[in-house]
Structures are given as structure tokens and as C-alpha cells.
Simulated scan of single mutants.
Amino acid sequence: MSPLATLHATTLEGEDMALSRYLGKTLLIVNVASKCGFTPQYRGLEALYRQYRARGLEILGFPCDQFGHQEPGAAEEIRQFCTLNYEVSFPLFARIAVNGADTHPLYQWLKREAPGVLGSQGIKWNFTKFLVDAEGRVRARYAPTDTPAAIGRELDTLLPAAA
């Protein structure tokens, strides 16, 4: 059974959400930040979401302030920034830790299943991405420099064909 069946996260609006609601979907899970050099990737992530959502893709954004204090805002500031600047419509969650003693259980699982370079468990920077298939298996880990457009090519092979 996938750990998604038992994990929970808090939405940006402060609601507890069982991640089991995403079982059966292909997920792209991303630690995001509003003041990062990679922040323009929000545009590409939203484009992927709009292109592939009908085929079963969900993108889950997890704000993180562990890298250069690049996500300092409160939840409402994050929501406004993402909506006004990038028209983000995919789910955003409350700010979390992706490294250290307070690492969110979702990221503990993701890092264990898809370690980084040389087996590193740590997340190196904002916009590290994890691809989880519809069966709940972590299929890939992408560096911050990997663009959403490049990941789209992988999605074409992983998702069912459009109706």
C-alpha cells in the first residue's frame, strides 16, 4: 500500500487534507518558493497542470522557506502571489520543512524512495520535483533546473492517452 493512503497535509487555507484523495492520480510534488530564481517555473507547472489534468495529473505545491528565506510570506501572501503572478490553480499547501528534524512525513517518504545525487536524502533547493505514478510509486526525482516542459515529455508516456 502506498504511504499516500495514510499521509495528511495542511492546505494553504489551513484545512487538514488526507493525501489518499490523490490515490489513482499521477502526482508531481514540488517544494515551491515565491522569491527564488526558479519561481518562474510556476508558469510551466501551471501549463502542465492545464495540459494534463484531464489525463489524471495533479500537481501539489508545498511552499518551503528553508533555502535562503525565499518563502517568507504568510499563507494569504503566498496565495495572492501565486494567483496574481502565475494564475496558479493547482493545489498549494501550507509551508513545510523538507529537510531536518521537522521534515514533513511526505518528504521523508519521497526522499527515501528517490534519493538525490550520490544517494543524498536532502533536498538541495526550491523547485525539486518528484513524480509519483497512479499506483503511488515514486518514479523520478527532478532537480530544480529540470524544467516543467522537460517533465511533460515523461508525462506523455506515463499518463493515459487523451480521450
Results as ranks from 00 to 15, higher is better:
L110W: 05
Q41W: 00
T128G: 05
G44S: 07
I59M: 11
Q108G: 12
Y52N: 01
W109S: 10
G37N: 10
N85W: 02
S20Q: 07
F67W: 03
L110G: 03
A47R: 12
Q121R: 14
P63T: 07
Q41N: 00
P105L: 00
F93E: 12
N85H: 13
G100M: 06
R141C: 09
W109L: 10
L60I: 11
E46C: 07
A140H: 10
N85L: 07
A94K: 09
G68R: 09
F38I: 11
T39S: 12
V117G: 03
V138W: 07
T145V: 13
A134R: 13
T83R: 15
Q66P: 02
Q41V: 01
E77I: 01
T83I: 13
P63Y: 06
C82R: 03
T83Q: 15
Y142W: 11
G116L: 05
S89L: 07
A47Y: 02
V132Q: 06
Q51S: 14
Q108A: 12
N126M: 05
Q80V: 15
A75N: 14
L19R: 09
R95I: 13
C36I: 04
K25D: 07
R112I: 11
I78M: 08
E46L: 04
M17P: 00
Y22E: 04
E87A: 14
T145P: 00
Y107W: 15
E87V: 01
L60R: 05
N126T: 12
F67V: 10
L118E: 12
K35I: 03
K35P: 06
P144N: 06
Y86N: 06
Q108I: 13
F90W: 09
R139S: 11
E87D: 14
L48H: 03
R55W: 11
Q108R: 15
T128H: 08
I78K: 03
N126I: 07
S34G: 13
G73A: 13
Y86T: 05
Q51E: 15
T26H: 06
R141L: 10
E71A: 03
P91E: 12
T39M: 08
A54D: 15
F130N: 02
V32A: 02
R55G: 08
T103N: 07
F62D: 03
G68L: 12
E58S: 11
Q80H: 14
A97R: 10
Y49Q: 12
Y49W: 14
K35R: 15
T26E: 04
A74M: 09
D65C: 06
R141I: 08
D102G: 04
A74Q: 14
G100R: 05
K124I: 13
A33P: 07
A94S: 14
L106I: 07
L48A: 04
V132F: 08
H104Q: 03
L27P: 04
Y52R: 01
E87Y: 00
L110K: 00
A75E: 14
L131G: 08
L84R: 13
K111E: 07
G73V: 01
Q51T: 15
P63K: 01
S89Q: 15
A143S: 13
D65K: 01
R79E: 13
C82V: 06
I96M: 12
F38N: 06
Q70C: 09
I59H: 11
R137I: 00
F127G: 08
P144G: 08
V88D: 06
H69N: 15
Q121Y: 06
S120L: 08
M17D: 00
E135R: 13
